[in-house]
Computed example of a mutant assay.
Amino acid sequence: MRNNLAYSALNYFGESNLDRVHLLRKDEAWIAARLQDPETILVPFQGMKPLLTAENQLQLVRLAQVQLQNLAQPPILLGLRHDKAYFAIDVTNAPEVPLAGGVYQELREATLQLARPDSGLLAYAKAILYWNRQNQFCSVCGSPTLFSEAGHVRKCSNPVCNTSHFPRTDTAVITMITCGDKGLLARQASWPAGMYASIAGFLEPGETLESAVAREVLEETGLKVHHVQYHSSQPWPFPASIMVGFIAEAESPDLIIDPQEIDDARWFTREEVKELVAAGELSLPPALSISYRLIQDWLNG
């Protein structure tokens, strides 16, 4: 039996080598002590871009280099790695904060040059910073929310409402569809010419993941699928999703494409994909995506 935990960790952003110490998020004394510890590490972001070295290494900033009072919001606890505490900080509105040399880069573009655990750490940091930024006001009553539990809860400041808000992740399913010895690849009109990938879409309320796969595939391609099998999952911080990967078998190869959803969809044999990619006539999604992994696993049989 396959170890799904280890299998998902093979996806980019799936490994962070971090203990999230969730029981310590409420321990204000422990948090304060860590923020006074010179060994504590900060992970800076500006405009949702992490600070990296010119060689695309994770740029770590020690507390002595940062004036915490100039931050837009308190540091957010990520957890412990090798007994050192890691916090994410947003320096977008604090340009005067002194930091070590480095460049703020788009995570999507830099990921393939990062060590896997660092890509996972940055995905986590980006997602929790984004959630805090997007939830400054209560969705129930509209009052401002307050930073709580080291950045993992935002509480409504209205004592009558007093709602606690927790981080949310948008769930999406992504599927490699097969029919006999062929696999289906599709493209959107906005993608670079020649790029094809697997079918994806968001989970809707009241749906199982398997039902979402069947619905999305039917809506976009007209195909009915069965034997929907889980493959692996991947955090996708662009801006805040979890991609749940599946493999499914189509009942027939007859396509009815919805032009509002996709620009084109085609059946390929494994040999055709390999030949077209080698010839430069077909390109696959970036290697950091679970779509690439689904396709490669199918190509490898």
Rank of each mutant, 00 (worst) to 15 (best):
F45V: 01
C179E: 12
F202I: 11
H227S: 15
Q65W: 04
P38I: 11
D27C: 12
Q65I: 03
E249P: 00
G101D: 15
Y130V: 09
A54F: 05
M195S: 12
Y7R: 12
R34K: 09
Q57N: 14
W267C: 05
A115I: 10
K49Y: 02
P95C: 15
A189F: 10
L282M: 11
G245P: 07
P259V: 09
L23F: 09
K49S: 06
P144M: 05
I31H: 08
I295E: 12
Q67C: 14
R168C: 10
L129P: 06
E251T: 01
C179T: 06
L42G: 02
A9V: 00
S8C: 05
S143C: 12
V103D: 04
P205K: 01
A94D: 07
A110C: 02
K224Y: 13
S190E: 01
R266I: 02
L58D: 01
E220C: 06
E281T: 05
V217A: 06
N11D: 04
E39V: 10
P74S: 09
P44M: 07
M48W: 07
Q46L: 08
E281D: 13
L299P: 04
W131K: 06
I295F: 13
S241G: 03
A279R: 15
M195W: 13
M1S: 13
A64M: 11
L24I: 00
E96G: 06
A123Y: 11
P38E: 13
I31V: 15
R154I: 10
E15K: 10
A110D: 03
L51M: 02
S190T: 13
N56Q: 10
S252Y: 06
P117G: 04
S211V: 08
N4W: 08
K274Y: 03
V277I: 00
Y86Q: 05
F45E: 03
L184F: 01
A127G: 13
S198R: 07
A94W: 07
K126A: 14
G79D: 09
L209F: 00
R25W: 14
P50E: 01
L185H: 09
L80I: 09
N132K: 01
L80Q: 15
P38K: 11
L42H: 03
R154N: 13
A125F: 09
Q134K: 11
D27Q: 11
